[in-house]
Amino acid sequence: MTEAMISSFWGPVTSTTEWCEANYTHSSYIAEFYNTISNVPCILLALIGLTNALRQRFEKRFSILHISNMILAVGSIVFHATLQHVLQQSDETPMVWEMLLYLYVLYSPDWHYRSTMPTFLFLYGAAFAVVHSLVRFGIGFKVHYGCLFLLCVPRMYKYYIYTEDVAAKRLAHLFLASISLGSICWLIDRFFCKKLTPWYINPQGHAWWHVLMGFNSYFANTFLMFCRAQQLGWEPKVVHLFGFFPYVKIQKPKQQ
């Protein structure tokens, strides 16, 4: 990490985490320039997903999921632009809330007690937000987030093996590829920063993590929309905008 080249509008860094990007190189209002603007693709992709979910009247859970992706991206923008601890929570707390939403979307179709799961997840998310506002988590936050992600994996795999549609399976492959490549970028940026800093051009691994996770969220949401529509008998199929951009198109029974 190099020293700031421009004076800071936000004051000294107070966040518990900094990334391998020099601070305030482009503007006194943006601490980590590339880590900030790299969240924009996530917002645009989530907006596309939200538009599709509303236009075809998918269940509200998917609209909320796309909105949560946008909220997370905005929170990340605020955090990386300021590197203030109080705003670090605007990035990390929505990350946990988003994983709780994924758990609900993944497991609720087979949950026989309809009110217990959303009630528990809501209380869990609220409790985490309160505790996180009082306690400075370090590695504990990453372990907690990783555990929530791992809880989603068995259900995603179950959906994958029960899906015969080739185009839908391709969405799952894109999901796996984007999170794998994004994780490599994250790890390189995190653990090889001292070796990267002398380079004339910083590869901006964390910024690429943001971009790839924006696509990862879109692929995950689209795959889950396909699976849920299939459960409901809505005859889903994966079609491609401009011949390459995938989204789910459904045909609901006339009585619905």
Results as ranks from 00 to 15, higher is better:
Y162T: 15
Y162Q: 13
D165M: 03
D165P: 15
V166T: 14
V166C: 02
A167H: 13
A168M: 05
K169T: 03
K169I: 00
L171F: 04
H173K: 10
H173M: 07
L174I: 00
L174V: 00
F175V: 12
S178I: 02
I179M: 14
I179K: 14
I179S: 10
S180A: 12
S183H: 09
C185K: 05
W186Y: 10
L187K: 08
L187R: 10
D189C: 02
R190N: 12
R190A: 14
F192C: 06
F192S: 06
C193E: 10
C193Q: 09
K195I: 04
L196P: 05
T197R: 06
T197I: 10
Y200K: 01
N202M: 07
N202K: 07
P203I: 02
P203N: 07
Q204A: 14
Q204I: 08
A207T: 08
W208S: 00
W208H: 03
W209N: 08
H210I: 01
V211H: 08
L212Y: 02
L212K: 12
G214W: 13
N216D: 12
S217H: 05
S217I: 06
Y218E: 05
F219H: 04
A220Q: 14
A220D: 01
N221G: 04
T222Y: 06
T222E: 08
F223N: 01
F223K: 04
L224Q: 04
R228Q: 09
A229F: 05
A229Y: 06
A229W: 10
Q231K: 10
Q231A: 06
L232E: 14
G233Q: 15
G233F: 15
E235T: 09
K237D: 10
K237M: 03
V238I: 15
V239S: 11
